[in-house]
Design a protein around this nucleic acid. Structure first.
Length: 219
DNA sequence: GTTCTAGAAC
DNA sequence: GTTCTAGAAC
């Protein structure tokens, strides 16, 4: 029997009984049963052929399941590194390789758009992952203040600044003290810095900006 | 990370 | 009445 079909008849009845009755969804129950957890989802994604767009012996690149821009990828090391807190100087080559691969993926996806390459200060998902995200932020999955601020405030830590930090101090020493406050900051356009009261009004505004690269850097 | 939804804000 | 956000999820 395939691993994924290994749900007992009793469990199936239990799942059915909980459809629309409990506060947890079927999927939550199933995930808990299989001792998986949403925060471990990137492990599964690494082996999902529909998600993987590139890989080599050191890393895997996947499409973000809920892209917050036209192009949004995650670059992850094959070796298990839980988070930035665990990287040391011995990981510098890996970090540089991840950034270089990210830049290649971005160029391959769209040569015109600006991209950023970096890490969330306090990521929700386990397993080190570098975001490769185009700066249009034009996506139906971008819905909350937390989404917006996680990519447009200092909560988003550029890859090159992580690398520089590890080179100089041997670790990632976060200068981001209160990450929670950054996520609750007022909504501000990442291009012109204009403030907005709601996500929908901000989303209407940002599509008006040109987020293509300056012409002299276009190939 | 997302989904769901109560109740605030409009 | 509708839009929008924020917090629970055992």
């Amino acid at each position: 029997m395939h691993k994924n079909q290994a749900v007992s008849r009793g469990m199936f009845r239990f799942l059915l009984a909980n459809v629309n009755t409990g506060s947890r969804s079927c999927w939550d129950v199933l995930m808990a049963t299989k001792s998986g957890h949403w925060s471990q989802g990137l492990l599964a994604a690494m082996n999902d052929v529909t998600a993987v767009v590139d890989s080599d012996d050191k890393l895997v690149v996947i499409k973000d399941k809920y892209p917050k821009a036209k192009y949004h990828f995650l670059v992850m090391p094959r070796r298990k590194i839980p988070s930035l807190k665990h990287v040391t100087k011995t990981d510098l080559d890996l970090l540089r390789h991840m950034q270089k691969k990210g830049e290649e993926i971005a160029e391959r996806a769209n040569k015109e758009l600006q991209f950023r390459f970096g890490y969330h200060a306090v990521p929700s998902m386990s397993h080190l992952h570098m975001h490769v995200i185009s700066q249009d932020f034009n996506s139906p999955f971008l819905k909350t203040k937390k989404h917006w601020n996680s990519f447009t405030t200092q909560y988003f830590v550029d890859s090159h600044s992580v690398i520089k930090n590890v080179e100089e101090t041997g670790q990632w020493s976060p200068d981001v003290q209160d990450a929670d406050k950054l996520l609750k900051q007022n909504l501000r356009c990442h291009v012109c810095k204009k403030e907005f009261d709601t996500i929908p009004s901000l989303k209407v505004h940002i599509v008006l900006h040109d987020v293509t690269k300056p012409s002299h850097t276009k190939s």
